[in-house]
Simulated assay, not measured.
Amino acid sequence: MSQGPFLEAKNLRVGYGGRPVLEDFNVSLQYNEVLCLIGHNGAGKSTLLKALFGLVPLEQGAITLEGKSVERPDPRELSAAGIALVPEGRGVFPGLTVAEIMKLGFWANNIPVGEQSARLEWVMGVLPMIKRFYTQRAGTLSGGQQQMVSLGRALLSQPRCLLLDEPSIGLAPKLFQDLAGPIRALQQERKMSILIVEQNVREALKISDRVIVMKSGQLIREGSPEDFSNNTELMELY
């Protein structure tokens, strides 16, 4: 019997103020897979990630995690189950130092005091650049540095699944490459599942196993990164 998906959403309806953004939406994320989700602004990509992490309530449909139904997705419970969200816009507190942000991460993920030092060392091994600005306030950091902090905070829980919402926003292509490389290496080493929403399609395809395209709350196309190598076709999807 083949192994089912790690995370799956069936017949989702999600919206704001009575207006649906996603309607009868289905998506699955396999074990040990990087799934890239692309589409125009307003297609519902970020809403999907928020729904999967329990930040937006489901109006209809179901989410299953490793084959078990999650009736009311809750961020704390999903975090405990090994899922981490890196939100769009980085979400770091500008007035706090990187060290203080990491302490908040320990608290949010219920990491015992005795394990915190080892967790931090592990994160620094994945993203060694953080050591250079560990004592600085997040508001003084560049966009790329803030993105590393946001990712590092998410990795403190040593998640089995990462939901990444547009990590390249505000970053030069080279900086996104610097971030994408360690993410892919970590994913392959730990057999993680990653769902990445990304506008920098070219770079995202390089680290993906499968691609889905959204338009106006619907999934309109699916394939391998090679299927989307034609730049003209890709632009037409937008």
Rank of each mutant, 00 (worst) to 15 (best):
V56M: 11
L237H: 12
A154E: 06
D165F: 03
S150Q: 05
V113L: 11
D209L: 01
A81M: 13
L104W: 04
D24I: 12
E233G: 09
N110W: 05
P87H: 08
G67C: 06
I83M: 14
I194V: 15
S229C: 11
A172E: 14
G125D: 13
G4I: 10
S79M: 09
I220D: 13
P225H: 09
L104H: 03
L120P: 01
A9N: 06
G54D: 00
E236T: 01
P94R: 15
Q177W: 02
L171V: 04
P57C: 07
L171Y: 02
G39M: 07
S157L: 08
A138P: 02
L195H: 06
L162M: 12
R221A: 08
K50Q: 11
F93R: 10
G89M: 03
A51C: 12
L35K: 10
Q116T: 08
A84K: 03
Q3G: 13
G89V: 04
Y16H: 14
V34T: 15
P182Q: 03
A138S: 13
W122S: 06
E8K: 08
V197R: 08
F25E: 05
G54M: 01
V113D: 10
V92P: 10
T47C: 06
Y134Q: 14
E77K: 10
V34I: 14
R72G: 02
G139V: 08
G181H: 07
F6Q: 11
E236G: 00
R137T: 00
K174E: 06
L156R: 08
P112L: 14
A62K: 10
T97F: 08
R184N: 12
G67H: 07
P128L: 07
L12K: 06
W107Q: 11
L55M: 11
M235P: 08
I130G: 04
R132K: 15
K174V: 12
T64Y: 09
T64I: 01
E233Q: 14
V123I: 09
V86Q: 04
L163N: 07
L186K: 07
V34D: 05
L171Q: 01
L85T: 06
F228I: 10
H40D: 11
G54A: 00
L195Q: 03
R210F: 01
G181I: 03
E203A: 13
V211N: 05
D178M: 11
V213N: 04
K45A: 05
Q177V: 01
E115N: 01
L237D: 06
E236C: 00
G105L: 03
G39H: 04
T232P: 04
S208E: 08
A84E: 09
E233R: 12
G89A: 09
